[in-house]
Design a protein around this nucleic acid. Structure first.
Lengths: 213, 213
DNA sequence: CAATACATACCCTAACTTTGTGATATAAAT
DNA sequence: ATTTATATCACAAAGTTAGGGTATGTATTG
């Protein structure tokens, strides 16, 4: 038996959801609320397996609701249910911890299987939403790839310390060499990176992930 | 009519897929191949709407295949079909440009609707895979969160130019103010960021995403 | 209206950085 | 054996930066 809580402000949609869900023997609807005020309390009272969450609700919206619920009960599976498929709302929801994201135009059968999936720990994402998520994912992954600029080991070390904001003097002290040696290394680093100042070198080093942040 | 191409090395699975797909009137299977050698050529020959792609194939695997296909025909929708649900393979596929990711244990009806989704430009992701994608997405989003350090608008501008490696002189020229003004701003920036040099400021600015790379 | 933050500008000095030109020694590569 | 890349050090000049002041005009806000 999967227990369910619904947050949805519109009366008619609440009724539809109720009808839909009640036809399923393995799903038990515990309660429905028109907004997320005290969502955390409701969760602790009912301890549902799965939550259906509308995004756009008066007073306290669905994204806030997700945060509240996940704060008190991280294992409760939350499926967002919304007419919006704009990137902002989707990503906000995911970051808040939503476990599924269905567009309201999704057919009823999709919703039911999403509930079952959620209770089994899987996530459901509507195709249109999935496309956006995959694109965003790709973007984030294809950042700047690591390049080496063929720095020597020592130069790498010096650049790392420079990136920490160390002065020549401090770098020299750290590496137990003279300050002029550091000057030499930095000269060579600038040549290889094709820059002319420490700030530029640091920016480039971080951009191309020559050093880690 | 949705045209389809299948890349799958195992004979028996190829047969099953063929049977499954042939029952659908709106789907036309154009050809099947046991690996991705010359996948790009095959695509250009058949110009299919959707591709079903196995990951683990001899000679040229599915991830390479996706790259080849997307390189010559970015609008071809590719659904990965695999027994593997390990993070590496999933993320590699997505980065390569896969438009859907189904586990082979997915039931037949899921596959069919995934094909329809794909032809409509939507992505299908199996629940188990979706969970991993969402988790990875959350991780990437929650990197270092943007902080402002309550820099003023002007200070922000100056910091951005500093991050480009500009000297005081160049910044002053760019903003049409005196070099001493820039000095003042930088003094204030250092105080707010709690740093003592340009390299340090740049590192911090990038780390905390005060400025974009 | 007074207080506060902001952007602007100037002065000053010590310290630091950049860049050029050498030089020596060692290890790897040709 | 000779070249090449690396790591080390030195000196010097020119230029830049960091940090200490102070000051003015303009908004914003309590």
């Amino acid at each position: 038996m999967i227990t369910l809580l619904i947050f949805e402000d519109r009366q008619n949609l609440r009724d539809s959801l109720k009808l839909l869900v009640e036809t399923e023997e393995r799903i038990k609807l515990l309660a429905m609320y028109p907004n997320c005020r005290q969502a955390d309390k409701h969760i602790m009272t009912h301890k549902p397996d799965v939550v259906l969450m509308d995004i756009d609700m008066p007073e306290v919206n669905g994204i806030e609701g997700v945060k509240m619920i996940k704060a008190v009960s991280p294992d409760t599976q939350i499926i967002m249910l919304t007419v919006f498929d704009d990137d902002e709302k989707i990503f906000e929801s995911i970051k808040a911890g939503a476990d599924g994201y269905l567009l309201k135009k999704s057919i009823a059968v999709e919703l039911i299987s999403a509930i079952y999936n959620a209770s089994a720990g899987g996530s459901s994402i509507s195709p249109g939403v999935a496309t956006k998520v995959l694109n965003a994912f790709r973007q984030k992954s294809n950042q700047q790839k690591r390049e080496t600029f063929s720095l020597s080991k020592r130069e790498q070390e010096v650049l790392e310390l420079l990136t920490k904001g160390y002065s020549y003097k401090k770098i020299a002290a750290d590496l137990f060499v003279s300050i002029d040696t550091i000057g030499s290394h930095i000269k060579n680093i600038y040549t290889k990176l094709q820059v002319n100042s420490a700030p530029e070198a640091v920016a480039k080093a971080l951009k191309y992930k020559i050093v880690d942040t």
